[in-house]
Amino acid sequence: MLKINRDNLRASHQLTWFVIDFLMLGLLIINLTLIIWDSIYNFVAVQNLLREHLPAAHSAYNPVHENFIFFDMVFVAIFLSEFVLRWGYSVKAKVYDRWYFYPFIHWYDLIGCIPVGSLRFLRVLRIISIVYRLHQYKIIDVTNTRLFQFFYFYYQAFLEELSDRIVLKVLSGVQAEAQRGSPLIERIQDEILYPRREMLSGWLSERVAQAAQQGYVPNRGALRVYLEERVDQALAQNHELSRLKYLPVVGGTIQDTLENAVGDIVANIIHQVLEDLASTSNHAFIEDIVNVFLPEPGQEHTISPNKEALISLVLEIIDAIKDQVQVKRWRENLP
């Protein structure tokens, strides 16, 4: 329901003009309604239908239809008078830089007054301009009306469908260019990723440290037991080591000592590597890996495995973006 904000109406200091706006709005609605009805009445089938079923209505409106141009000219006279009045006010108030700017800016008001069928419907633009002016001054709020929400919803749906198709077309073109060996991949590697090697190294270092801390530190004991069991099984299957037990007196002792030593060495090495990865000291290691995958610009002139991996990464990222673009947000608001 369209409501009038009386407080803003009084505070605008243009009460007279807004009253005129409301009067013109009512007259325009009445006039356009008559124009539409007279266009429908112009069909002989409609006239015959009224003559048969509503003879009183036919008799009452037929003189209006025969002299419709006269009745329309009454509305035109009122509209032109209001147009001239506003033109004079704009000249007096110096709304525009030149006195003759007003009819050019409000051309639809002037042309809509021409009593020709196709031009009469330009008066709809006048209704829109009045409603927009009232909405701009917050006298009315058209966004709360069901009609506005209905058209706005499908307008947004249309824009989303149109923009989605355009974006998907562009992204598909980018994928095709990347697969054909476009310079896009080199630009991504040399101009986007390479200057941000330190940022990538820091981010990867933090992620690796976080993953190691969450996955390794709470399971340190279980991991050590698992490693020792694996080492014991591997050593038990080693034929050279199993021959030590045949040494007189000290064979079994040497074998047990060697198995324990190897198990401790392997477990300690693995634990040290994981502890290094779980700490900030892993930054240099991660940085070296990043430097291998992102060499300095100009060093690679052929399609290397790193370049192929980058192409695959870009294509997968674009596929993920396309999947997200295909999500129809406007359907989520459907009742």
Rank of each mutant, 00 (worst) to 15 (best):
E240Y: 01
G221L: 12
L159C: 09
L247I: 10
A176K: 01
W203Q: 12
Q175N: 09
A261W: 11
R224V: 12
L200W: 03
A267S: 13
A178E: 00
V231C: 06
Q179G: 04
D264S: 02
V167R: 07
D164Y: 01
A211V: 04
I254D: 04
Q255W: 02
R196Y: 04
G181F: 00
K245D: 11
E206F: 10
A176I: 00
V174N: 01
R243K: 06
V273Q: 11
E160G: 00
G215T: 07
A261F: 13
I269T: 13
L171V: 04
V167I: 13
D276G: 09
S201W: 04
I265D: 05
T257W: 07
P195L: 14
Q255E: 13
Q213W: 09
Q272G: 05
R187H: 04
V217T: 13
K169N: 05
E161C: 01
E240K: 00
I265G: 04
W203H: 06
I185M: 14
A234T: 07
Q233K: 14
L200R: 07
N219F: 15
E161L: 07
D256G: 10
Y246F: 11
L227V: 08
Q255S: 11
I270C: 05
I269S: 08
P195Y: 10
I166A: 14
I185H: 02
V231W: 11
R196K: 13
E228I: 06
G221I: 06
Q210F: 03
I254M: 13
E191G: 15
N238P: 00
V250T: 12
G215I: 02
S205D: 08
S182A: 15
E229M: 12
V262N: 04
A209R: 15
A236H: 13
S205C: 02
Q210D: 05
S163M: 10
V225M: 03
V273W: 14
A176G: 10
I254K: 08
V174E: 01
L277Y: 02
L168I: 08
D264F: 01
Q175P: 01
S182I: 00
Q179H: 12
E198N: 02
A178N: 01
E275P: 07
A209P: 06
E259Q: 15
S182G: 10
I270K: 04
E259C: 06
R220W: 03
T257Q: 05
S281L: 04
I270F: 09
N238E: 00
L159H: 10
D164K: 11
E186M: 08
L159W: 11
R187N: 06
V167W: 11
H271P: 03
L162W: 15
R165C: 02
Q179I: 00
I166W: 15
I185D: 00
E206W: 12
V208H: 12
I192G: 03
E240T: 01
Q175Y: 02
V217L: 15
A209G: 02
S279W: 15
W203D: 03
R165N: 02
A222W: 13
D164A: 05
Y246D: 01
R180F: 00
K245C: 07
G251N: 05
S279D: 04
G251Y: 14
V170G: 15
T280N: 10
E161Y: 08
